[in-house]
């Protein structure tokens, strides 16, 4: 038996397009390490450099959000189903997200270029 993991669209580039993959591990951290051995780069999209679960994803074990199960320390058993979804969040001005965004260079660059074009329009 193994643990079934559901992969969201945005991360299927790491799984060769597969929607469901299998892995094993006693904890979520172990499972992600196991998955990363076959789907290199996947773990890096879910876990921050500091070793915490990323703010941009929701991970569920069966029907529970792992944030309520100890996050990366959440215990897993054979036959469990793990679901990964992109967190849907945003808003005009998210103070809570500011720290998380600082590490997201692509997004920062994109909005910075938008800010420049907006200012250029305003000046005209």
């Amino acid at each position: 038996m193994a643990i079934e993991v559901r992969i969201p669209t945005i991360l299927r580039s790491y799984t060769g397009g597969a929607k469901i993959v299998e892995g094993s591990g006693d904890t979520l951290a172990d499972l992600l390490t196991d998955l990363d051995s076959r789907h290199a780069g996947l773990r890096g999209r879910l876990v921050t450099d500091a070793g915490a679960l990323h703010r941009f994803v929701n991970v569920y074990v069966n029907d529970e959000d792992v944030r309520f199960l100890g996050a990366l320390d959440a215990k897993l058993n054979d036959g469990d189903s793990v679901t990964i979804l992109p967190a849907v969040a945003g808003g005009a001005f998210g103070f809570a997200a500011a720290a998380a965004i600082a590490s997201h260079s692509a997004a920062t660059a994109a909005t910075a270029s938008h800010a420049r074009s907006a200012r250029a329009v305003a000046v005209r």
């Binding site: 669209t9 945005i10 941009f56 994803v57 808003g91 998210g94 997200a97 997004a107 994109a110």
Partner: peptide
């Protein structure tokens, strides 16, 4: 995927861009 901005223009904020996880 929709949301409202209640005091600013309807343009994605930095936060919106960072979180956008559904490329389709």
């Amino acid at each position: 995927i929709y949301h409202s901005h209640t005091a600013t223009e309807a343009y994605p904020s930095r936060t919106d861009v960072s979180f956008a996880g559904e490329p389709g």
